[in-house]
């Protein structure tokens, strides 16, 4: 039985296929969550939430999109929700967000386990820059780079048009270029002093 057939069985109420479906899709969910929140413990928490929702709501899936797209949507929603909750938990988080709507804290030196060893250092700076992107640009960039989705798939997952996705990607790359330039210039400044 392939993934799609397993999902259809779950949709029809056959709970016995759930462990297999989890085994086949857990890396996809975990990787997406990890790339968005850049924290392994949070990503595991989100993955659990995604699968619990998947189990509870599979019967409600109407089939207006691909089932994988639906899982991506749940994953994106849960990841963003988790980030918001985390920010709220911090003291004065709400007031900080009102007066300074930029992303809150940067996780220190996130290293994605799938990045090639030679690229680890540069990827670390890139993830720091990704963290500073506006929400939609960040999602588009992460889904393309980390999950290898094309513009149509990203558009379906984010409920937007492919043109909007292309524009967001272009802006994301421009912003990342600027942020990385600042990061490397700062390093250069410190090295010289």
């Amino acid at each position: 039985m392939n993934q799609e057939e397993l999902f259809k069985c779950l949709q029809q109420g056959d709970a016995s296929v759930f462990p297999k479906l989890v085994a086949l899709t857990q890396d996809m969910v975990y990787n997406t969550a990890l790339s968005i929140v850049q924290n392994s413990a949070d990503a595991e928490d989100i993955s659990q939430e995604v699968f619990v929702t998947l189990f509870q709501k599979a019967g409600e899936f109407r089939g207006d999109a691909d089932w994988k797209t639906w899982i991506y949507r749940i994953c994106i929603h849960k990841s963003l929700d988790h980030e918001k909750k985390k920010r709220r938990m911090k003291n004065g988080g709400f007031l900080k967000r009102v007066f300074n709507p930029l992303p809150a804290e940067l996780p220190a030196d996130f290293n994605h386990p799938g990045v090639q060893y030679a690229n680890k250092e540069m990827a670390k700076h890139l993830f720091a820059a990704i963290r500073q992107l506006p929400e939609k640009q960040r999602l588009v960039f992460v889904l393309q780079k980390m999950e290898g989705l094309n513009a149509t798939e990203i558009a379906a997952a984010m409920k937007t048009s492919t043109d909007a996705v292309s524009a967001l990607l272009k802006r994301a790359k421009q912003s990342l270029r600027k942020t990385l330039e600042n990061i490397y210039q700062d390093f250069n400044h410190f090295d010289n002093n």
């Binding site: 085994a23 990787n31 595991e44 890139l126 980390m146």
Partner: peptide, 30 residues
């Protein structure tokens, strides 16, 4: 050059593997 290399540093990146016993944790959470 460094900025461009950094932008392409995620090319060929593999999927992160989910931690072991995820299914058990999902069941207990559920």
């Amino acid at each position: 050059k460094i900025v461009e290399e950094s932008l392409h540093s995620l090319d060929g990146c593999k999927r992160a593997e989910a931690p072991p016993f995820l299914y058990t944790r999902i069941v207990s959470r559920s």
